[in-house]
Simulated scan of single mutants.
Amino acid sequence: MHVLVVNSSGRTALSVSRQLVAELVTELVAQQPASRITYRDVAAGLPFVDEVMISGLYIAPDEQTAEQRQALRLSDQLVAEVQAADVLVIGVPIYNFSIPAALKAWIDQIVRAGLTFAFLESGYAGLLHGKKVYLVVASGAVEVGSSLDFATPYLQGLLAFIGLTDVEVISAAQLSLLGEQPIGAAREAIRQVHSVA
């Protein structure tokens, strides 16, 4: 099993989402010790989509300029990481009711026509299938699944768009209001996880 771990919290040692992501990965590896893990810390910084990248997205690779190929190189690598993974573990702190800008930057790099989704006469089709996704969501005040949670439904919709529909949410929500109780509930959910065969 190949696991891609994506962390997006701007915090490190004090990050609840990072802590729970690490515990989930430990659980998955305990179930399948031969697992390979790829770590991607998007909070360390990713470039935003710019004009050079956009201009290179819609032409054949052999027609791209050297500048366009360079602009797409990291995006190609990030897409390859997602394609190679059997399981994605995505750490999602809720910032201002939504996802961190760093995670949005990653999304903008991996949602690629012809690689992760296709244009069809009838609409669109996701090209990534047979992968399990865990969204490990942490929030200070927002209740996950409430009308103020724009992060979780956005990610579920976006992942479905590229073909990833087997998505499980593990949340530690409203930490500022409820203290340690949500962390305990998230840990119990992690203990119930069954790894992908």
Rank of each mutant, 00 (worst) to 15 (best):
V87I: 12
G91Q: 02
V42S: 00
V79F: 12
S146V: 06
L175I: 10
T116H: 01
A173Q: 14
V21D: 00
I190F: 09
A102E: 05
Q31S: 06
T38P: 07
V29D: 09
N96K: 07
L72H: 02
I94W: 01
L164V: 10
Y134P: 08
T26A: 15
Q83N: 10
V87W: 09
A34M: 10
N7T: 14
L88D: 04
L175E: 08
F48A: 02
H2F: 07
A44N: 13
G145M: 12
R11D: 08
E121R: 13
I37S: 05
A101M: 02
R40W: 03
E188R: 14
L128C: 08
A197H: 05
V16C: 12
Q64I: 06
K104M: 01
I90A: 02
A160H: 14
G123P: 15
L135W: 05
V5S: 00
P100G: 03
V16H: 12
A173D: 15
R187W: 10
V52M: 02
A141C: 04
S8W: 03
H194D: 07
V82K: 04
V25I: 05
Q181G: 11
F48Q: 04
S122K: 13
G179D: 12
I107E: 03
V6H: 05
V6Q: 04
I90K: 00
D76P: 09
V92C: 02
Y154M: 02
A101P: 04
T116F: 03
P61V: 06
